[in-house]
């Protein structure tokens, strides 16, 4: 009933769907591939993992951001509520990077004490309001930031 070419096409399209779903089930959401680790997990990293690049996410500790001009960069601390790690970053941080907000840093955990990063992403929360409301001290209901780190 089918010509050979059509049959191959059907198999390809079925494989496309099955492969995509399989990738979701096994590749991305498996236990060994998480999008980021938390500061507590970074502190507990086994020595062999410190050679690899890792992403670490946390809240930028208020008052911890210090900038340098030569070379341009900054140091700050990331926390998940239980552990805090110092981060050294080279470059210009993204505009939404801010104390008291979330950030994801990509880099290496060295010597068991400092995280060296060359790429920062801002992790913003899900609340949106005009600046007048924010100044008036309005807080909209949102997920506790620390809970978004390790659900």
């Amino acid at each position: 009933m089918w010509t050979q070419g059509k049959k191959t096409g059907v198999i390809i399209s079925v494989l496309l769907v099955a492969g995509s779903l399989g990738y979701l089930a096994l590749g991305n959401f498996g236990q060994n591939l998480v999008y980021f680790v938390t500061p507590s997990e970074v502190r507990a990293l086994p020595p062999e993992r410190t050679q690899q690049k890792v992403r670490v996410a946390g809240m930028v500790v208020k008052g911890s951001v210090k900038t340098q001009s030569d070379p341009v960069g900054l140091t700050f601390e990331l926390t998940d509520g239980t552990a805090t790690i110092p981060v050294v970053f080279r470059g210009i941080p993204p505009d939404l990077f801010k104390e008291g907000q979330g950030a994801v840093a990509e880099g290496h955990w060295r010597d068991g004490q400092t995280f060296y990063s060359s790429m920062i992403m801002a992790k913003h929360s899900e609340d949106y309001m005009p600046i007048e409301l924010k100044r008036a001290g309005v807080e909209l209901p949102k997920k506790d930031f620390m809970k978004t780190l390790s659900p």
Binding site: F29, V34, Y35, F36, A57, V104, M121, K123, H124, S125, E126, D127, Y128, M129, P130, L133, V138, L140, P141, K142, K143, T148, L149, S150, P151
Partner: peptide, 21 residues
């Protein structure tokens, strides 16, 4: 899961978007 994407703004927690927006 752990994502860079922000959680749902409208959920059982309530609505985290102000009226004008």
């Amino acid at each position: 899961w752990r994502t860079l994407h922000q959680p749902l703004s409208i959920s059982l927690r309530g609505v985290s978007i102000s009226g004008d927006i």
